[in-house]
Design a protein around this nucleic acid. Structure first.
Length: 885
RNA sequence: GGGCGCUUAGCUCAGUUGGUAGAGCGCUUCGCUUACACCGAAGAUGCCGGGAGUUCGAGUCUCUCAGCGCCCACCA
């Protein structure tokens, strides 16, 4: 037996163990296996990112499910990959270029993409490499990228099929436009924040007559694009003005006064300026009244440079233009007043720039018809959210679904597979570039320059990575649909819902049965971790300090079924680190005491009460573990392992085993039990703490059916070994030992002072338990002798401390050692508690309604407890009076 | 405006078929008992946010109020 360090050093083992798994090809999935399949695709991290705590918990939970199911013998696939992260990636590369004073236009389309590819490729392997430190059992051979060949093929296929079904269309609509990214973004990529602003009231003079109409707006700079002033049709203030015209100030353009129901009479002045090109509501109103939109702001958020706008604002940024316009209005006495006004302003999720509602030609997915099956999926039980409360969020979104703007005016991404004929303008949507125009036969054909929203390819991830559209692809056949999707709630709309939509449309089933939603990782004050706050925690640093297993174990324990957000601080990882160390040392003890042990199984005919108890506890632990993992109570699984390993196996069984190991007759079988249970702990704990369990398991001398723990069978509970009466008995023994220790502590009895223990027991179950445990009591409670009697006449010695366990009386004669007053006080405190409990129990039993309504089992339990307390109270009273006497 | 979550020991939080409250850390007191001081032993600590209701019985179910946090929608 080699000497093991007394403190576990994860740094020394984790890398070594991971390499060992890789060298033995342990992660590889077998698409041709006969076994039942279990598969997960990871939420592909953005190539722009680095590993953060969210990834750490997300992938730990997945790894637990994967490793558990792999050990159950299933054909298991965990597919890794990365996301090209369209706008995010392009933004970073453009920023780098800007440092060299260049723009993407300086480089041109192809050269720019070349640079992005280069950058993304470097980042791609880097980010996944970071995951290795977590110990993830990814099948690296199946690593994918949302922009790789296979994904591109799926994207084109999906696009064309949707287009042909009429579910993708192109048209001019108001979209959310980010002037910094110079691209459209989708509704859900727009985050609203309340901001302080003003409601400006501006006078629009009537044409050819005296008077004016006063409109209210938060965005005066858009007034140049006004095409009308709208009022409510029934508003008496304005009824007489309907059909008349006003002169748009500053540019002296004549526009009509129209009536529309959408106008709120109570808001502002009740008169609304209509700017169809730059406001979604105005666009709708404009459409109803056949008013042509006038663009006055360009794609970069600057005012146009021609006479559509006042000469003083041409080419100005929208905000500068606002200032300027206000100034001009003031100058002309047309600004009536400015009221402070808070309103919600949309921001680009990627760069936080205020988005511009912008009328432009975009591609959309018609969502309504696509969500029918995804909605039904819930009712049919084909899609299950865990925890359940996310179902409603998902359904609400599906029921209120709006069309999805999928085109982005950037270069990095899947170029839309649509082609237009330069000659005749014909649009052709096809997987491959057509030779010539299908209409005019012209050869002058150009592909759309827009690319797709990055989430479009993500939506196909579960099947695009498995070989679809080839329905015979082995992976697709074996591993699709996947078993479960594990993610945080922040991407339910972006990703989860859209995967379900695409899954049903193209494979006629949900891409996963379960969606397991966990909480978000926050800092110790509950704030979201973000680079700008400077409160991000780097998992790699935690791993360096505490170890990967400690990180995994801690995060898992903190994870609750309800998916509460997790507040983290560095110190919390001590929990996992300490536990790893405890496991290490318990194993060290066992390994040091295995000398002479054979590989024979436990002799079940020769077990002590403690042996039977640990086996009973062990198998109950297994039952709980299976149940908790299978029902996604994964935090509970970690806690069960902690409790069993530390508080049951270490605190009690190992301590008891020490007494058995020194008994030649008991030694061998005790070694077998120690080893058997340790082996079981290692296997059971492996999914959450893979490295340390593998490391220790390799050190255990035994016949090994596999070279690695991770490919072993996960232990199954053996109910025949569960013995509830042994559980009760050992609990009494443990209580007895604790009681004696309590006496020692509270009466200040020296540690090296051995005590005599007299047990007066009339209950056969209790008596057998104590008789079988004499040796344990001697060692663990430091007793000279243990006398068990049921001699009713046995007299309590004059000076003694005492306790009651179950219904048995424990007496510890102390001679001159005892402080009688202290002991009396100790007993009285106990008595008070018991009497309090007794009272409440008696109340219950005296309650007629309780007796007639409560189930028999509860009544029975109450009676038993009452009986027990009664005995205990009597005994304590006896003891007190003997002390006083 | 609509919806969701949280409020339990000093701190961070568990507690899904309603049976009389738990963990980790911290705290107090012992202890180098050769697996472990990243440890062992013994302890203390809670009108489970307020109120009402259902029930023999509520941290757990219903209603209501309050505080904190989040999501969705949106008024120019």
């Amino acid at each position: 037996m080699q000497n093991l360090a007394s403190v576990y050093d994860p740094r020394a083992t984790e890398k070594k163990i991971y390499k060992f798994w890789e060298e033995n090809d342990c992660f590889k999935a077998d698409a041709h296996s006969e076994a039942e399949s279990f598969s997960i695709v990871i939420p592909p991290p953005n190539v722009t990112g680095i590993l953060h705590m969210g990834h750490a918990i997300d992938n730990t939970l997945q790894d637990i499910l994967i490793r558990y199911n792999r050990m159950l013998g299933k054909a298991t696939l965990w597919l890794p990959g990365t996301d090209h992260a369209g706008i995010a990636t392009q933004n970073i590369v453009e920023k780098n270029l800007r440092n060299e004073n260049k723009t993407r236009y300086d480089l041109g389309h192809d050269k720019f993409l070349e640079i992005v590819w280069e950058w993304a490729n470097a980042r791609r392997s880097d980010i996944l490499d970071q995951f290795k430190q977590l110990g993830v059992s990814f099948d690296w051979s199946r690593q994918r990228f949302t922009l790789d060949e296979g994904c591109s093929k799926s994207v084109k296929e999906v696009f064309v099929r949707l287009y042909e079904k009429g579910l993708i269309y192109k048209g001019a609509y108001i979209v959310n436009w980010c002037p910094r990214c110079t691209s459209a973004i989708s509704d859900i990529e727009t985050d609203y924040e309340e901001e302080e602003g003003h409601l400006w009231e501006i006078s629009y003079p009537l044409e050819n007559e005296m008077g004016a109409i006063i409109i209210a707006t938060t965005r005066p700079e858009t007034m140049y694009g006004d095409v009308a002033v709208a009022v409510h049709p029934d508003d008496p203030r304005y009824k007489h003005l309907l059909g008349k015209k006003v002169v748009l100030p500053l540019i002296n353009k004549s526009i009509p006064i129209i009536a529309d129901d959408a106008v709120e009479r109570d808001f502002g002045t009740g008169a609304l300026k209509i700017t169809p090109a730059h406001d979604p509501n105005d666009y709708e109103i404009g459409k109803r009244h056949n008013l042509s939109p006038v663009w006055v702001i360009d794609n970069e958020g600057k005012m146009v440079t021609d006479d559509r706008v006042h000469s003083d604002v041409r080419g100005l940024d929208r905000y500068a233009s606002r200032e300027q316009t206000i100034g001009l209005l003031k100058l002309h006495g047309l600004l009536i007043r400015a009221k402070k006004h808070n309103h919600n302003v949309g921001h680009c999720q990627r760069c936080n720039t205020v988005v511009e509602p912008y009328l432009s030609e975009q591609w959309f997915v018609k969502m309504k018809p696509l969500v029918e099956k995804p909605i039904e999926a819930i009712e049919k039980g084909e899609l299950i959210f865990v925890p359940d409360r996310w179902t409603k969020i998902y359904l609400d979104w599906m029921h209120n679904i709006r069309d999805w703007c999928i085109s982005r005016q950037i270069w990095w991404g899947h170029q839309i597979p649509a082609y237009h004929c330069v000659e005749c303008g014909e649009m052709i949507v096809a997987i491959d570039k057509p030779q010539c125009c299908s209409k005019c036969r012209s050869l002058n054909i150009q592909q759309e320059t827009d690319v797709l929203d990055t989430w479009f390819s993500s939506a196909l991830w579960p099947f695009s990575t498995m070989g679809w559209p080839d329905l015979d692809a082995p992976d697709f056949n074996k591993f699709y649909p996947t078993s479960v999707l594990v993610t945080a709630f922040d991407i339910i709309f972006f990703w989860v819902a859209r995967m379900v939509v695409m899954g049903y449309e193209f494979t006629d089933q949900s891409p996963f049965k379960y969606v397991y939603i966990h909480g978000l990782i926050r800092d110790k004050d509950g704030k979201k971790m973000s680079k700008s706050f400077g409160n991000v925690m780097d998992p790699r640093e935690i791993i360096e300090t505490y170890g990967s297993d400690a990180l995994r174990f801690t995060l898992t324990s903190l994870n609750t079924y309800g998916g509460q957000d997790i507040k983290l601080s560095d110190e919390k990882f001590e929990y996992g680190r300490n536990f790893a160390n405890k496991l290490w040392n318990a194993s060290r003890f066992v390994l040091m005491n295995l000398e002479g042990v054979d590989n024979e199984p436990i002799n079940f005919n020769d077990l002590t009460i403690a042996d039977r108890w640990i086996l009973s506890q062990y198998n109950q632990m297994l039952q709980k573990v299976h149940k908790s993992i299978e029902t996604f109570h994964i935090g509970e699984y970690a806690q069960i392992m902690y409790e069993f390993t530390w508080n049951i196996y270490c605190d009690w069984y190992i301590e008891i085993a020490k007494t058995q190991l020194s008994n030649d007759k008991r030694k061998i079988n005790t070694q077998r039990v120690l080893k058997y249970v340790l082996d079981g702990i290692l296997k059971t704990l492996h999914p959450v703490m893979p490295h340390i369990t593998e490391e220790i398991w390799q050190l255990i001398p035994q016949d090994k059916s596999s070279v690695t723990l991770m490919l072993n069978k996960f232990p199954m509970p053996d109910e025949s070994q569960i013995d509830k009466s042994v559980d009760v008995q050992m609990e009494l023994v443990a209580n007895l030992i604790s009681s004696i220790r309590n006496i020692r502590q509270s009466l200040n009895i020296q540690h090296n002072q051995k005590l005599d223990v007299i047990i007066e027991s009339y209950d056969p179950l209790e008596k057998t338990a104590f008789q079988a445990s004499e040796k344990y009591i001697e060692i663990l409670a430091r007793a000279n002798s243990v006398n068990i009697s049921n001699d009713l006449t046995a007299e309590t010695p004059p000076q003694c401390a005492s306790a009651v366990v179950g219904t048995s009386k424990i007496i510890v004669p102390l001679g001159g050692l005892i402080d009688i007053d202290k002991e009396i006080q100790r007993q009285k405190t106990k008595l008070e508690k018991l009497e309090k409990e007794m009272k409440s129990l008696e109340n219950r039993l005296n309650n007629q309604k309780f007796m007639s309504n409560a189930p028999d089992e509860i009544k029975h339990q109450t009676h038993i407890r009452v009986k027990e307390i009664k005995t205990q109270i009597e005994t304590i009273n006896d003891l007190i009076s003997s002390l006083v006497g």
